[in-house]
Simulated scan of single mutants.
Amino acid sequence: MLLQGLLLGGLYGLFALGLSLMFGVMRLTNTAHGDFIMLGSFSTFALVTLGLSPWFALIAVLPMAWVCGYVLQRYVLNGTLGKDPLPSLVVTFGLSIVLQNLLLELFSADPRSIETDGFNTLSWAVTYDVSLGALPLLIFALSILATAGLQWLFSHTAIGRSFRAVSDDREISELMGLNARKVYALATALAFVLVAVAGALQGMRTTFSPSDGPLLLLFAFEAVIIGGMGSFWGTLAGAMLLGITQQVGFRLDPGWGIWGGHVMFLVVLVVRPQGLFPKTRG
């Protein structure tokens, strides 16, 4: 049960990293985040139906996600940033409605899944009673690598220092020569690559439909809040804690899994509202 919770937390970690990145750099809460995950799922599904293997389809989606994130931030979301969070919330909420209806129009409301030629059912026996799925293990490994990669990027590269500079003080960083709009666009493009990976793997792991976005947004948001805003390792830890709590709930009663995760989220908000690890450290 605990192992399955950790593996589920790896998937939630991939969901949450893009959200954490955007908030950490721009203080922007993207309420369309879950719907962009679904867009990644359906984009990969569409390429698979055209004849690509699921892994080549995933790779092909990544540059499209980068361009989509860059253009969206540079020409739409940048205009909503400021001390008042309401404009960005309204715009991303509108994007959520548009994406849901667009996917519904293109793909209908029927649940879909991405065929992986049996990889999603492959498992390895750890003990006589315990087997772990190959796909969940791959997702868990990618979640660890993505978290470590983001932490390294922020701590040891020039673009990472630019991300931290505009996050700390946009005006001062622009006086020092940084183009904040371009830096924000690069951060969003990177976040959308993570979103595309999460969406493709979600589609390989289980069925999905155009209406699934808000629930995935909720899981991502809870993981970020539990871990602490702006902390990548904290986000991953929060996602794993959420996954374990849900698995414990499912073990007690099939109807208690998701509900148990929500209760744990509320407990963390009451006991430690800043999250478990509220600051990314270099």
Score class of each variant (00 low, 15 high):
Pro254Thr: 01
Val224Lys: 09
Leu217Asn: 08
Gly243His: 02
Ala223Met: 06
Gly234Met: 13
Gly243Thr: 10
Arg251Lys: 14
Pro254Met: 02
Leu236Ser: 02
Gly228Glu: 11
Thr235Gly: 15
Gly238Tyr: 00
Gly228Gln: 11
Leu252Met: 12
Phe250Glu: 07
Leu218Ala: 15
Thr235Arg: 10
Phe221Leu: 15
Gly238Arg: 00
Thr245Glu: 01
Gly238Lys: 01
Gly238Met: 03
Thr245Met: 06
Gly255Met: 03
Ser231Trp: 11
Asp253Ser: 15
Ala220Glu: 08
Leu236Asp: 08
Phe232Cys: 09
Gly255Glu: 04
Leu242His: 03
Trp233Ala: 15
Gln247Tyr: 12
Trp256Ser: 10
Val248Ser: 02
Pro254Cys: 02
Met240Ile: 15
Leu218His: 05
Leu218Met: 14
Gly234Lys: 08
Pro254His: 02
Phe232Asn: 11
Leu241Phe: 01
Ala239Val: 10
Asp253Pro: 09
Val224Arg: 07
Thr245Ile: 10
Phe232Ala: 14
Phe219Cys: 04
Gly228Lys: 12
Phe250Lys: 05
Gln247Ser: 09
Asp253Gly: 08
Ile225Ala: 15
Gly238Ile: 09
Gly238Pro: 09
Ala220Phe: 10
Leu217Glu: 01
Glu222Asp: 13
Gln246Gly: 02
Ala237His: 04
Trp233Tyr: 13
Met229Thr: 12
Leu216Pro: 00
Leu236Tyr: 12
Gly227Lys: 03
Leu218Pro: 02
Leu217Ile: 07
Leu252Tyr: 08
Leu217Gly: 01
Gly234Thr: 13
Leu236Thr: 09
Pro254Leu: 04
Ile226Pro: 07
Leu242Cys: 12
Phe250Gln: 04
Gly238Glu: 05
Gly234His: 05
Ala237Met: 14
Gly238Ser: 06
Thr235His: 08
Ile244Arg: 01
Val224Tyr: 05
Val248Pro: 00
Phe221Cys: 03
Met240Pro: 02
Ile244His: 00
Leu241Tyr: 01
Arg251Gly: 13
Phe232His: 10
Phe250His: 07
Leu217Gln: 04
Leu241Asp: 01
Gln247Gly: 04
Ser231Asn: 14
Val224Met: 11
Gln246Ser: 07
Leu217Lys: 06
Val248Tyr: 07
Leu241Cys: 00
Ala237Asn: 04
Phe232Leu: 14
Ala239Trp: 00
Pro254Gly: 05
Phe250Gly: 00
Val224Pro: 02
Val248Ile: 15
Leu252Val: 08
Gly227Arg: 01
Leu236Ile: 13
Ile225Lys: 07
Leu216Gly: 03
Gly249Pro: 11
Ile225Gly: 11
Ile244Asp: 00
Leu217Val: 06
Thr235Asn: 12
Gly227Asn: 10
Ser231Ala: 07
Gly249Lys: 01
Gln246Tyr: 08
Gly230Ala: 14
Gly230Tyr: 09
Gly255Gln: 05
Met240Cys: 13
Gly227Ala: 11
Ile225Leu: 15
Leu242Ala: 02
Ser231Tyr: 09
Leu236Gln: 12
Val248Gly: 00
Gly227Trp: 02
Gly234Ile: 11
